[in-house]
Amino acid sequence: MRTRTERRERLVPHTIDGETKLVPEPYDVQVPAPPKDWDHIVLTGALAVVAAGLAIVIVWSTSSIGDLLTRTDVAAPIAYAAATGFSLGWIVCMALEWLARYDPVRIQRPRKAGHVFLAADMAAVCVHGWVVDSLKVGIIGAVLSGGAKALWTLVLDHQAAPLDHRTQQWVNIKRGEIGGRLALGASMRQLNRAESRAAAAEAALRTTPEPSPVAPDDEEVAPDDAPQLPSTGPMTMTDAVRTALSCNITEPDAVLRYVRKVADANAKEESVARTLRSLRRTA
């Protein structure tokens, strides 16, 4: 039986000056080595061959179609960039096929779309060969693209394990539930953003200030017993504060409301409070 060496660690007691501590100590142990997984090795090699073939096909198709497009008034960089779309289209569809390999229904659309993109790619390569008077070379280049697609389809069919009918239905139901949760989360985020924008718009359009709440002390004072302030004006803030004090109104909130009523509607609370303290000291 084949074995391999594996490095591990263990805690061992170590004493210095009568004090013992557990310290890690590395050691080697021989463990059985698993046999080589030839199936995985062969599959990896097949995928490497397919990837190399795809790279060659992309370069060939891009070179051929790019040269064909440069025969117009299009600049060479733009022509070659557009030429990559012919190959990348069916290669992206191959990636979608891989993601949907366990669902025979969902895999049909990317597979059909891939065939369409592949046909367009092969036709463009053939047209380039015909334009440069080398139709045989164009046909060979088109066959390379078709061969790469065929190899990928074979590898994909080997990897796609078919599911029985009940398991497939269970997977579809579970996918629908999770998809519904994702859609609900995205919809709630959109609604929250819309609600925030609506609240911001309403706040911007609000031109009248909200009525200030009535203080509890003001509610306890009967209307007949409350001192009446003169509402004549206009007057300065200092005169308004002095008038309020002369009417025995000393509460800062009440003084502030009177100042804003007869003197300055935008009077600041700090300014009114400072004037009130100054007049109290000089009184």
Rank of each mutant, 00 (worst) to 15 (best):
G146A: 15
R106A: 12
A48M: 13
G146I: 02
S63T: 13
V116C: 01
D67F: 06
C126E: 11
A124Y: 00
L43R: 15
L54I: 09
I56W: 11
L99I: 09
G66H: 04
D121K: 01
W60T: 09
L135F: 10
D73R: 10
A52V: 08
A55W: 02
A55I: 02
R111V: 05
I140V: 13
P110F: 03
H128C: 02
V50E: 04
V49M: 13
I58C: 02
V92Y: 03
L99D: 10
T44S: 15
L154V: 15
W38A: 12
H40T: 14
G89H: 12
R106L: 10
V132K: 15
I56H: 13
F117G: 01
G114Y: 00
V105P: 00
D103V: 04
L96H: 13
W130F: 11
V125T: 05
A76M: 11
C93G: 05
A51E: 14
L69M: 15
A75R: 11
R111M: 09
H128G: 04
G138R: 01
S61K: 00
V74D: 02
I56D: 13
D67K: 08
C93P: 01
A100V: 11
D67R: 15
D73W: 03
I139Y: 09
S61I: 04
G138M: 06
R71W: 06
L144W: 12
A75C: 02
H115I: 07
R106I: 08
L47Y: 14
T70F: 02
G53S: 05
W90E: 03
L135D: 00
A82D: 07
G85F: 03
F86E: 02
C126W: 03
L54T: 06
G147Y: 11
P110K: 00
A119G: 11
S64Q: 11
M94Y: 00
D73Y: 09
A120K: 05
S64Y: 07
M94I: 12
L69D: 05
A119C: 06
C93T: 07
I140A: 12
L99S: 11
S87Y: 07
L144A: 14
G89C: 06
V131F: 10
W38V: 13
V132M: 14
A148P: 01
H40C: 10
D39M: 03
A123W: 10
V74T: 13
Q108T: 09
R111N: 04
I140C: 08
F86Y: 14
A52Q: 15
V57P: 00
G45C: 10
S64H: 07
A79R: 04
A81L: 13
L144M: 14
H40R: 15
I91T: 07
P77V: 05
L54N: 08
S87E: 00
K112A: 15
V92A: 14
L88V: 08
Y80I: 06
W60M: 05
S134L: 08
A113M: 12
S63D: 10
V42G: 02
